[in-house]
Write a protein that binds this DNA or RNA. Structure first.
Lengths: 339, 339
DNA sequence: CTGAAAGCGCTTACAG
DNA sequence: CTGAAAGCGCTTACAG
């Protein structure tokens, strides 16, 4: 308790003075540069310890023109698919020694724009973006202009200079629909998701192909879009129940949508798995423990996160200049809602 | 496309030169200082626009010795209680103009320590910490030494100079146990949670008081601790089933624990709500849609997050020097598992 | 209302 | 193996 606590932060300069060396030397010691002798190093380390030195990354980053900070922008952290994705991203980024600046857009394009600006002003070394549903390519123009590495996840943008990691939505949807068709269904609704967003269009593609391959006519009135939330699912289900003829099976944009749909149907006394079959998408942990357990397409949010972080890292380190697209293959997990 | 894209970032100096003013003036314009004339301001703004100037917060923060960054460290973002809490924190912090540096400890004290150091090195203006279960007071010593404002959330630490926001765990537990007792239960287990962590001790207190007030003897063998996850709940349930006499009701440390417990009991053919009553804690969204819907104590993670952010803001702005403790009152939500 | 100069706490060539 | 000096891009007194 002998040192006065005035200027709380001790500077490298003060450490150097205390140890009787130059700041150059002290700086090299802090960064574990081997060209400092053991004796000098120990002297400096002792001074750092005694004075309670704390490395000032802000100053260091400013001088060395990098930040070791990666911006991560997602649509909604309370969505399990997203939070699992985030865990994948964070774990890998932390292994690489980055710190994560997080932003949540709640699917608002305006908020997304503001967050991107903030991140750029904070000089992030790179950005991982899970775009809002209605994003357009110019959202990330600023990043491209400043040559800030960008990896898109889960949703692709057109005309954008960025890597992409996602899963094969057409393929996953194709598997889901084909499964329902093989069970004898001919009227299969597609509920939820934001129309014309890439994640929706790609599912639509799989939905269409599966119908064609089975020589079934696709009934566009069975396709009902919505916000990508459980509430959105409830709304879509209500609209579906107003149709002249109710379909015998439903493919849902996501598990979250499926939960909303199932809630409404159950309230209406419709027994899921008996009166109507349902398939979701994502295989979030709740899908398994839901009642009844949900048949769904398993994507791998944590892996997507890992891959996105790895791609970004190699871009930041300029290990590769080419664009990469990583598309993970999804799998169908059959449970009680379509047994 | 006429300007060469060499040094990608334009500096304030270049803007000033281009506009024919000093950097002082340019700086004041960027920060909307009213003491610059309209004419000069417009000239500078035009130059900024033309050159594509991007504000460098890192440099600004360094000079002005603050960061506008708040560190937020939580145990697990995939836990719904935590992610809701985070949404509350983020929304409020963003309203105040802060950016969030996020860390996840996965309940590891070592990881927590590392994250705190990283945040400190990044000169965060303040920190919101949802401490790992086994945290001790000295974890945050560095923060106190450097006088970095700290708000603890959901879990309190002893001998620590920090604000605290949480809910009244003894009260919430008291309500849950009293409810079960009023239904005629006399053997009520308490499953899950990390023994001797503050969140556990406080629940234990309510558990004890409810027993005492009802003149029931508390049977310590019915108290089985575990990791604070659904897996932990499964393990605790298995241990409980090994008891010589199985209790007729269970109070679970959290909803997550309750889900694990219910999974095991259901597998064993025990019908919940008939053979055995269960109450959880947190009222996460899944509690309502679980099968059967879970009776639980409703805490308000989003409000806790809002409050924590507000407290931290006023500390950072030095609006108040005293310590604050905000304790939210929980409510019992009765559903099918204890009807 | 505007500007010249110093400085935030580091790192980076460069010299010895 | 070590040090003196310049500089990263801003903001901050201070002067006029």
């Amino acid at each position: 308790m002998k040192k006065p606590k005035k200027n709380v932060r001790v500077t490298l300069q003060e450490v150097a003075d205390h140890a009787g060396v130059s700041t150059t030397t002290a700086s090299l010691v802090v960064r574990n540069n081997p060209r400092i002798s053991e004796a000098t190093r120990n002297k400096v380390l002792a001074s750092m310890e005694e004075l309670g030195y704390v490395y000032d990354r802000v100053a260091a980053n400013m001088r060395s023109q990098n930040s070791n900070i990666i911006g991560v922008i997602v649509t909604d952290i309370a969505n399990k698919f997203i939070s699992e994705f985030l865990i994948g991203v964070q774990n890998t980024l932390e292994d690489f020694g980055y710190t994560v600046l997080l932003g949540t857009t709640f699917d608002s394009v305006e908020k997304q724009q503001k967050l991107i600006s903030t991140m750029v002003e904070h000089r992030v070394d790179g950005l991982i973006l899970n775009p809002a549903s209605r994003s357009v390519g110019k959202t990330v123009k600023q990043l491209n202009n400043l040559k800030i590495p960008l990896v898109l996840a889960n949703r692709e943008l057109t005309n954008v200079h960025a890597d992409y990691v996602g899963i094969d939505y057409p393929e996953g949807t194709y598997k889901a629909i084909s499964h329902l068709i093989s069970k004898g269904h001919e009227k299969i609704a597609f509920l939820g998701g934001v129309k014309n967003s890439s994640t929706w269009t790609e599912r639509m593609e799989g939905y269409r192909t599966a119908h064609e391959n089975a020589n079934l006519t696709l009934d566009e009135s069975l396709v009902i879009d919505s916000e990508p939330t459980d509430k959105g699912g409830e709304e879509a289900a209500l609209k579906m129940l107003d149709l002249p003829e109710i379909p015998t099976a439903i493919f849902c944009f996501s598990d979250l949508i499926a939960f909303g749909v199932m809630k409404v149907l159950t309230q209406k006394g419709i027994v899921i798995g008996r009166d109507i079959d349902i398939v979701g998408f994502d295989n979030i942990p709740e899908a398994e423990i839901y009642h009844p357990p949900l048949t769904t397409v398993s994507s791998y949010p944590k892996s997507i996160g890992n891959q996105a972080a790895k791609l970004l890292h190699s871009k930041v380190k300029r290990e590769s200049e080419e664009m990469h697209r990583v598309i993970l293959k999804p799998q169908l997990v059959i449970r009680e809602t379509s047994k």
